[in-house]
């Protein structure tokens, strides 16, 4: 199989590393070669963070190059816009419709762009979700990223049962049930 390229972008502290661990787990379960590249250290303190996941028969480089992403999972609108040019022309953007102001916006030195999702919809296939609202419905706001992942899962070729099994083996034992529920909710929304 040709290598598939997935990206996860967001704001440091939003839980991108957990999502990439689940993604890594599912690709191995399916028997693929896989490489993941993450950001640790300073950028994790509220900065813009990106994780690359590549899987296929044989993967060389660990990063996804511009114009090469099949699926871009964005946990925040501005970050979706920042990395949208990494998408292939027929790539899919799954975006959490949430706004987190970066410091230049907070202090009035820059403006948060308007109509981000509407503009991106003109160029790419976009699936949006207010994952925070969905997560609150489930009773745990921290599961919002697994909801977004559930939506994105519709655009990757793995079985739902396998996703759920990987989630069970990846998240902390106490949060297995809620995370599985969150994934199911996202999976339903992604249809």
């Amino acid at each position: 199989m040709e290598t598939r390229n997935i990206m996860i972008v967001g704001v440091g502290g939003q839980g991108t590393l957990l999502t990439s661990r689940i993604l890594g787990g599912i690709t191995i379960k399916a028997g693929y070669d896989v490489k993941l590249s993450e950001v640790h250290g300073m950028a994790q303190r509220g900065g813009s963070v990106v994780t690359f996941v590549r899987y296929g028969d044989k993967v060389n480089e660990p990063i996804v190059e511009e114009g090469q992403a099949d699926v871009l999972i964005a946990f925040e609108r501005l970050e979706a816009l920042r990395y949208a040019h990494f998408l292939k022309k027929d790539g899919v953007l799954v975006v959490n419709d949430q706004r987190i102001d970066p410091m230049p916006v907070v202090i009035g030195a820059a403006k948060y762009p308007e109509n981000i999702i509407e503009d991106l919809e003109k160029k790419y296939k976009v699936l949006k979700v207010d994952a925070m609202a969905e997560a609150l419905k489930l009773g745990n706001p921290k599961t919002f990223n697994v909801i977004v992942l559930g939506m994105a899962a519709r655009h990757m070729d793995f079985k739902k049962e396998d996703w759920l099994e990987v989630i069970e083996n990846t998240v902390p034992p106490k949060t297995v049930e809620i995370n599985k529920k969150a994934f199911e909710a996202g999976y339903a929304l992604g249809a």
Binding site: V11, G12, G13, M42, A43, Q44, R45, G46, G47, S48, E66, G67, L78, E79, L81, R82, A84, H85, P102, M103, P104, V105, A110, K111, Y112, P113
Partner: peptide, 15 residues
């Protein structure tokens, strides 16, 4: 390649 969008930077900050 597509030109990257001009967007405000998001530098790391104190939590």
């Amino acid at each position: 390649l597509e030109t990257p969008a001009q967007v405000p930077v998001r530098p790391p900050i104190l939590c």
